[in-house]
């Protein structure tokens, strides 16, 4: 059963994730996204982006890394083989483009259990790194995406 003590926990900002052109192309290919703005610089710039723009669910790549801080923690009580994804939301404050350096602050918004079933909701606040000076590249700056994810964890008896 998921440990209720984790509710409300906030983790320190992650190390920066560097958004690369080939990663955007690879992810777009994997979800069948043929929009030229994921693949072709001229097309992306034609739409006003400084570089290739990421598909709408690309941020899951970044969010999943941050979420592992929580779901892989043995103290959290989450058996990943018994996890079912319940819901997911992406709120884009700015589009993600190649060249972005993004840091994530993970929040555990809720942990509830009823019988053998636990529901956990996490929220990843993904920011562009601050450019305020040397040594501050992991300081969260402009908000880019919020990723909210709810997992259902079945207990041994469920």
């Amino acid at each position: 059963m998921a440990n209720p003590d984790f509710q409300g926990r906030e983790y320190p900002a992650t190390a920066p994730y560097s958004v690369g052109r080939e990663k955007i192309r690879e992810f777009a290919e994997a979800v069948g996204a043929t929009d030229p703005a994921h693949h072709d610089l001229v097309a992306a710039r034609g739409l006003g982006y400084p570089d290739l723009v990421a598909p709408p669910t690309f941020a899951v790549v970044i969010a999943q890394r941050a979420e592992s801080q929580y779901v892989s923690d043995p103290e959290a009580g989450i058996d990943f083989s018994r996890v079912v994804h319940a819901d997911e939301r992406f709120t884009h404050h700015h589009p993600i483009v190649a060249g972005d350096e993004l840091v994530t602050v993970l929040h555990v918004d809720s942990v509830t259990s009823r019988g053998a079933l636990s529901m956990v909701t996490t929220r990843c606040e993904i920011f562009a790194t601050s450019e305020t000076g040397f040594g501050s590249d992991t300081v969260p700056g402009t908000p880019v995406v919020t990723v909210t994810s709810t997992l259902a964890v079945r207990g041994e008896d469920a």
Binding site: A30, V31, G32, A33, T34, D35, A37, H38, L47, Y49, V53, A54, P55, P56, T57, V60, V84, H85, A86, D87, E88, R89, F90, T91, H92, P95, V97
Partner: peptide
């Protein structure tokens, strides 16, 4: 993968994949 694939209908209709400002689903 399902969530990420089906939204292609929306991005191609919109003509701009960066125009999707919010996207949510329940599995």
């Amino acid at each position: 993968l399902t969530m990420g694939s089906v939204v292609g209908l929306v991005t191609e209709w919109a003509g701009d994949p960066g125009a999707v400002v919010d996207y949510t689903t329940r599995f």
